[in-house]
Amino acid sequence: MSDAPVIVELVACAERKLGRLTLNVPKTLNSLTLPMVDTLQQQLDAWRDDPEIGAILIDGSGEKAFCAGGDVQALHRSATATPGGPCEEAEAFFAREYRMNYTLHTYPKPIICWGHGIVMGGGLGVMAGCSHRVVTEATRIAMPEITIALFPDVGGSWFLNHMPGKSGQFLALTGASINAADAVFTGLADRFIASEHKDAVLEQLRRSAWRGDCAANHARVRHILRPLTEQSIGSMPGGQVEPHLSRINSLCDGDDVHQVVDNIVNQQTTDQWLSRARDGLAHGSPLAALWISRQLQATRHCSLREVFQSEVQLATNVVRYPEFAEGVRALLLDKDRNPAWAYKSTREVPEALLDGFFTAPWPNNPLADL
């Protein structure tokens, strides 16, 4: 195996080829760096119009994770090097990562994502954009950005707003972990296939006679995955979101975001999943809870293009503000889990401060040309 952070392969098939991209930094749970983002973008661009490429597979090395997110420590270094910004490395990462995510969402050829193991943050951004998203019994998904004072980005403003009921808002505010059944229920994944069938998927992709017609190739992928999905039904774990949906909707039914936060944080429950979700919000940044809520509200009716343009604006403003650096310090660097948040509650945050995060920090949006 190559030691490249992204392994690029051309797999010969019955007709044409399969392009395979394997995230290959298992020591860091395949967390995305800027060079990895650039490699993904370059290959997607090169293969889009290559008549020899019928379909693409994206997976991760190792059994633990597809991708545990972006390289947050690199973002922290950039944020602390130039407090108040511009934070050039971090801002370049966000802009190029979101461009790559948008490319995935709008790609004409079938892209199969094998979302096995941990799928968090930037990894979920990759998976969510693919046209054929497969999860397994080992899949563990979360967008825990509130714990480091970020927000569910990489298209989160799009897919969270399209989830059933208030589940997207709840997951965004709490960072709650979900599994394969939840991913299928909320629309983050298309199919559940037991991990033991991965070799069968690869073998059938290799045997395929890919056409020059993208629609026919999408149908071919569905034909391959469908019977393996049916064979895997007995292995699917029980979900959390669907059985809790009425409770989630009730907790998120507030007159304003402050009441929603109070509802979640003050709930008395012996349910393990709900209590972990409650604690995620209770220990997270109150300021982040506000920009998370406003971002979801502001993008409810936005196009995908507008979503990524708004996310890069918010991410740029967030990384320039000290709350994010403090969150990363407490959770990932010093690991004392005792962040000194700027405000003790959401009600203490000045409205003018929050407004500033939704004001363009530059004359031209770096994703204006999407």
Rank of each mutant, 00 (worst) to 15 (best):
T229F: 06
K344A: 08
A215T: 13
N24K: 00
W114E: 01
R278F: 05
S195V: 07
S303A: 02
V307T: 04
G123A: 11
H218K: 01
H223K: 14
L40D: 04
G54A: 12
P108S: 07
V119S: 13
L274M: 13
M236N: 13
V11Y: 11
A288I: 08
D262Q: 08
L281Q: 14
I193M: 13
L332M: 04
Q169K: 10
A368I: 01
L304P: 12
V72A: 12
L228G: 09
P286A: 06
A180G: 07
R329G: 02
S285G: 14
S285R: 11
K198M: 10
R226C: 15
G234W: 07
A330D: 07
L251W: 14
P243I: 12
A216Q: 04
C113I: 04
S250Q: 10
G122P: 01
A176K: 03
R226W: 02
S208L: 07
A352H: 15
Y102C: 04
A215M: 06
N263G: 10
D336K: 05
P286E: 12
K27P: 00
P322A: 05
Q73C: 11
F358M: 02
A288P: 08
E145S: 14
G122D: 00
Y321V: 04
T359C: 14
W114P: 00
G125A: 05
Q295S: 13
S208T: 15
R191A: 06
D182A: 11
A14D: 08
W341H: 09
A340W: 09
R220F: 07
R20N: 15
F151R: 13
S345C: 08
K64V: 06
V25M: 03
Q297I: 09
K344G: 07
N101Q: 01
R207Y: 13
W291A: 15
L150R: 07
P152G: 11
T39H: 03
D271T: 13
D271Q: 08
P110N: 05
T299Q: 04
L75P: 15
L21T: 02
E15A: 15
T33V: 10
C67H: 13
P164K: 06
L34W: 01
F324W: 01
N217M: 07
L23F: 15
P108T: 15
A46R: 11
V319G: 11
S246P: 14
M127N: 03
I233K: 06
C252L: 06
T316N: 02
L304D: 06
S345E: 08
A352W: 09
V201F: 09
E137H: 02
N266A: 11
T316P: 00
W47N: 02
C252P: 07
P5E: 00
G70I: 12
C214Q: 10
S345I: 05
W210P: 00
